[in-house]
Design a protein around this nucleic acid. Structure first.
Lengths: 229, 229
DNA sequence: TTAAGTTTATAAACACTGTATATTTACACT
DNA sequence: AGTGTAAATATACAGTGTTTATAAACTTAA
């Protein structure tokens, strides 16, 4: 038997491969991702996967793009559930959604921001669209704050010249915001990322403060710092 | 030939294995760590390593402990180079040292805080001594601030009961500080970790602000927030 | 209808990896 | 001198990603 007839074939094998990959990542962690294990579960042979993904890294990239997309959606939905003029409320909602998504899909979060696949380096240009969009929710709010003159970022380091072209590409995926707003958003992002990634990776000493309360404290500190009055 | 005579043996093979591991990690990244590659370079066979480390994970744990120790030393030295009564200066020096160490040894930083080894989970109880000590520098300064009534952490979430025993163990390695100071230090740690880890992993959009300046801005923001006046 | 060409899978093999087992030899101690 | 232990090798197993050759199923066109 060399090729199953169309009736016994799996329809949309490309999607099936990704779904099985996610399933195994959820069960055994992103580090244990294995083409052969995926093939085994789908009852095909490992090299068959190469018809749909040129190599393992390409599959990982596809997974990362899907994860970024889900992550971005999650934050955008949280933002849009708030009153349109309540920018502080929007920023807080986005921050809470950020952590909620990460706690719900810790493996996906690690796949994006950790380095669970040995030797894998995400190709920036392929990932940029979904990655840019995943950061667009906080940037949009901060840009509105800036326009309303309510952004408190005195002394924030100036943006360096020379990146205009790169930024234009980014803008084409994330929305037409000011580069200064992006910079401030990146710093705020680094704060929530710091707390969430330590929490997920279990790198914090296992005693002390409730995770929800600590995160809320940090979120409020940040909002107080960057939003005027 | 089954066992080389003592003259041709490598003295202190245990150390040599670790050194070679570090060398290869620095060259090709922590993810590419391979017992067989280490053995090849030392001109021994791979199973010989098992005389010194029960398995690959044990070697990784030993490397992590060494890294934590180096990391902790680095911060303690930076703190002690400041005037004894300049607590804000000490905290800033520790923060700068934190990033400096991470940029000098990005692979070691990733080995500690990332998950570059598939399936590896650090055994808390083995790592705790060096890990606790690596956090002791900021904790010590914050505890002094607290004692001097200069710590500004109103509304900081209360420490939960039930972890007293764990905390006592931690204290035996890191020093006799208050658990509240540890909690605040953890939050500050998460901030520097967020920024540094994104910078090292190259996860930030590649445009905008100078890394040194951004880090300094965040450090000053944090010091302003947590130190009274 | 038949022939040619393309798609999509398998089979087999290669070069790796960590690890377990058995074996052999060098050394230390009685 | 003999015995026991320690430290290495040799060999083998199961797993990995990937390459190459091959064959069957499907598509298209003469």
């Amino acid at each position: 038997m060399v090729r199953p007839s169309k009736k016994t074939q799996i329809p949309n094998l490309q999607e099936a491969i990704k779904e099985t990959a996610w399933k195994q990542i959820a069960e055994t962690g992103a580090a244990a991702l294995s083409l052969r294990a995926i093939a085994r579960e789908l009852k095909i042979t490992a090299p068959a996967i190469y018809n749909y993904f040129p190599d393992r890294d390409a599959l990982v990239t596809a997974l990362i793009i899907d994860a970024y997309t889900s992550f971005g959606d999650y934050q955008i939905i949280a933002r849009d559930a708030q009153a349109e003029d309540d920018l502080a409320g929007q920023l807080q909602a986005i921050g809470l959604a950020y952590r909620q998504w990460a706690l719900e899909y810790p493996q996906r979060y690690q796949l994006i921001f950790g380095t669970p696949i040995p030797g894998y380096q995400a190709p920036i240009m392929e990932v940029l669209p979904s990655a840019a969009r995943s950061l667009s929710a906080p940037v949009s709010v901060i840009d509105q704050l800036r326009i309303a003159n309510r952004l408190n970022a005195e002394g924030f380091p100036a943006v360096q010249p020379g990146y205009e072209q790169m930024f234009d590409v980014w803008r084409s995926f994330a929305g037409n915001y000011d580069i200064f707003s992006l910079s401030v958003a990146m710093l705020i992002w680094s704060r929530v990322h710091g707390l969430v990634s330590l929490e997920i990776a279990n790198d914090m000493p296992p005693f002390g403060v409730d995770g929800d309360a600590l995160y809320m404290y940090e979120l409020k500190s940040t909002i107080n710092q960057f939003i005027k009055r």
